[in-house]
Design a protein around this nucleic acid. Sequence first.
DNA 1: ATGCACCCTGTAGCAACTCTAGGGTCAAGG
DNA 2: CCTTGACCCTAGAGTTGCTACAGGGTGCAT
Lengths: 132, 132
Amino acid sequence: MQIGELARSTATKVETIRFYEKIGLLPAPARTEGNYRDYGHAHLARLSFVRRARDLGFTLDQVRALLALSDERDGSCGAVDAVARMHLAEIDRKIADLRALRRELDDLIGQCSQGSISTCRIIEALGPAEAA
Amino acid sequence: MQIGELARSTATKVETIRFYEKIGLLPAPARTEGNYRDYGHAHLARLSFVRRARDLGFTLDQVRALLALSDERDGSCGAVDAVARMHLAEIDRKIADLRALRRELDDLIGQCSQGSISTCRIIEALGPAEAA
DNA sequence: ATGCACCCTGTAGCAACTCTAGGGTCAAGG
DNA sequence: CCTTGACCCTAGAGTTGCTACAGGGTGCAT
């Protein structure tokens, strides 16, 4: 399988695959006569794993850790669980942050009476805190 | 006021202020004899504006737009409102995305029975979709 | 005069790709 | 036989928003 096909079947850009190879996330595949990368099942499996983990928001470092763990077929699942839980906690933090932000921004927008800039509450709210 | 004081009074790093100047977000201030940057009220006001907008999650490009708008003191507030609403919509999208993700990840974690890697549902779920 | 806190410039690094330039390979069609 | 077009290759720069050096200069107190 050449890189384009692998890219299509994992919804990944060709450049991204080469990038993953360069940073050591994917093993370098064999090459054809014409120096084309030649992928097999194992590569497809590994790249699928990486993409799914990325889609779930894991960082590349976390993906690297998960890959290493998944390679030790008889190690304990606990470490995997820990990585996932850590990530879940992070997501919860981000959601909370965004919600707080959303509320603030919504308040600001609610105050805009569509007048001129000089009386705009949004611009005003962004200005310095009275002191300056 | 020198850069350190400006940094302290806006909770910004010195390097960040210089960076904002370099990308044209802040006007270059006057210099002292010894070539130190010398800031006044206007700079403080502008940097405060930038920091607040950034805290609200606006991108630097959006901040640039808001600054330009706020400089036209008698333009209409409509454009400002539009930028803010656009940003709000984006935040809503992000929150929704994160929530979907959270659910998926939570399901995955729920299936982990703390056994060995070879039977780990998390690792399994990340693998390829049966095909490979 | 010497130490220290502060300032200066310029450059490189972070995540995680994405894109471009400038080429090579391979199969099909005229 | 030769060209066209789709694909592949490498190396390097660009993206966003900073942050962190390295290697120096300034200003004030002791």
